[in-house]
Design a protein around this nucleic acid. Structure first.
Lengths: 216, 216
DNA sequence: GCGTAACCCTACGCACGAGTAGGTATGCTC
DNA sequence: GAGCATACCTACTCGTGCGTAGGGTTACGC
């Protein structure tokens, strides 16, 4: 139709693996800004520098694309954390290294974090997927607490352990959000602050110092 | 057209104020289950037992309706909390009463909680509204911490205070989610657990016991 | 150098859902 | 019991965005 006259180098015709990553990058970016429903496949395609049918050919429907984003960012995060905390270290050091890795990840992948924890939670089709990932984290933390407890010869109800772990994970996520909104903040310092809240409180509990409600 | 022959009592023609509340109830329910975008005005109208144009006549567009839900549930929650914690009590008692009121609210209004904290956070148009409410909460908590600190003659950087408050609010929200997913759980007991994590940790910090990162 | 498979596009069909036009019935006031 | 405001409805328009049909072009194997 029209001769491709003064076209720039036009890096077109890239191998599939490369294009898929570009698409996922664009999808994570758009999903994180707009949310699942408000994001349009057209915008994602345009942002990836490709046409829409390509996205469908490689990554499937919108839901499948979102799940693919979830998986990539989720496994990236899990690897970052798991790779940082060797299982033979003392609990507080493991916790510290895990937190540092986690906040480092969030600081470096704000979009990925937003997709995972701000967008996926509200949407039915994916909430389960997310909850499972979160449950794994809670389990790890609970395991660490339990281990520390046994080392001290103490013991605590399973529900109590789970709930404390939940609270710690929630506090961590909250600080991650804070970090995502404060680009100037230092991930490592944030991790230190989290340790101050979490470990101090947990340590007290581990030593048997429990708080009891006052009369009325 | 067709004679209304054997029609049941048909409670139609209710006063506006009543219908508005019914609509808001339905809207909160549907929004909490489906999320903002996936919820349809038709479903909300049907659930409220009314036709769609009525919803538009009374509460306006979909966005305005969502904001109305946000405001009703938000002020309900704020009132529940504010009414529970008199400002002249010691900090730990105030914290305890506030938490108890908060978890009581979540236990009794799971849908409202879901709309506020699971749905509104991801959607651009409302994230600001929500963030402001959350900021007010963080401010209150930070104020309590600061007050407790000054009483002990100690002082801490403003950012540190804010971040700790953020972590505590996050932990609380996380436990609220846990509570919303465990209908059999007792709100008061959950509040006690939260006090154990939050207050123990905060108390340590207030007494100057800070945690410092180990070498490497 | 030629076939073939992989890459890539423009241009559409189609469903769903927000918002409205225009009209009907009911209760309240005087 | 006439008039009027308010509650209420059915049945539409129209934009938006998911997903696809059908066809073009470039690189790689042989």
């Amino acid at each position: 139709m029209l001769a491709r006259v003064s076209s720039a180098p036009t890096f077109r015709r890239l191998p599939r693996a490369v294009r898929e990553q570009q698409m996922l990058d664009a999808a994570v970016k758009v999903f994180s800004r707009r949310g699942f429903h408000a994001a349009s496949m057209d915008e994602i395609a345009e942002d990836a520098g490709i046409s829409k049918p390509m996205v469908y050919a490689y990554l499937g429907t919108k839901e499948e694309l979102f799940v693919a984003c979830l998986h990539r960012e989720g496994t990236r995060m899990m690897h970052a954390i798991a790779g940082a905390a060797a299982p033979d270290l003392p609990a507080d050091v493991r916790l510290w290294r895990g937190l540092r890795a986690f906040f480092g990840f969030v600081g470096a992948h704000r979009d990925g974090w937003a997709v995972l924890y701000r967008q996926a939670r509200g949407e039915q089709p994916f909430a389960g997927e997310l909850a499972a990932m979160r449950a794994r984290l809670v389990e790890v933390v609970a395991g660490m607490l339990d281990h520390a407890l046994r080392t001290e010869g103490r013991q605590v109800g399973e529900t109590d352990l789970e709930v404390v772990a939940y609270a710690l994970v929630g506090a961590t996520e909250s600080l991650a959000d804070w970090l995502a909104d404060h680009p100037e903040a230092d991930p490592e310092k944030t991790a230190t602050r989290m340790m101050n809240v979490a470990w101090q409180g947990a340590a007290q509990l581990l030593h048997g110092e429990t708080w009891r409600p006052p009369a009325v």
